[in-house]
Amino acid sequence: MNTIWNKTNLVLIMIDENDKKIRYTYNNLIEKPSDDQITKFAAVIEKLTGMSFFTAYVTTTDNKTQAA
């Protein structure tokens, strides 16, 4: 089977000043974001929102096609 990358999504879970978890979802990212890229992006979101980074989830959608 051939695999063709379709899209990558990132979910950042942040903690607000009341210890409530807030979810931010970003769609259509680059194919394979590195841990360093995700960490730096989360740091920017921390500065913009005043919240603390808790965790991140990366999901990738691929299309599988039968090899001819």
Rank of each mutant, 00 (worst) to 15 (best):
M1S: 12
M1Q: 10
N2A: 09
N2G: 07
N2S: 09
I4M: 11
I4F: 10
I4V: 13
I4E: 11
W5T: 03
K7C: 08
T8M: 04
T8N: 01
T8F: 01
T8D: 05
N9I: 04
N9L: 02
L10C: 04
L10E: 03
V11K: 00
V11E: 13
L12Y: 00
L12D: 01
I13L: 06
I13F: 08
I13Y: 07
I13R: 04
I13A: 04
M14E: 03
M14Q: 01
I15P: 02
D16V: 08
D16T: 08
D16G: 06
E17T: 06
N18K: 05
N18I: 07
D19E: 14
K20Q: 15
K21A: 14
K21C: 11
I22S: 05
R23N: 12
T25W: 09
T25K: 15
T25C: 14
Y26G: 05
N27H: 12
N27S: 12
N28P: 07
N28C: 09
N28K: 11
N28F: 06
L29G: 00
L29A: 03
I30W: 01
E31C: 11
S34R: 05
S34M: 05
S34T: 07
D35T: 09
D35G: 10
D35V: 07
D36P: 06
D36N: 12
D36C: 08
D36W: 13
D36M: 08
Q37W: 08
Q37L: 07
F41R: 04
A42C: 01
A42P: 00
A42T: 02
A43D: 14
I45Q: 01
I45E: 00
I45K: 00
I45L: 03
I45Y: 01
K47D: 07
L48F: 11
T49W: 00
T49N: 01
T49C: 03
M51W: 02
M51I: 02
M51Y: 03
S52K: 15
S52D: 15
S52H: 14
F53I: 04
F53T: 02
F53C: 03
F54T: 06
F54W: 12
A56M: 06
V58T: 06
V58Q: 03
V58S: 03
D62R: 10
D62C: 10
N63P: 04
N63T: 15
K64G: 09
Q66Y: 08
Q66S: 10
A68K: 13
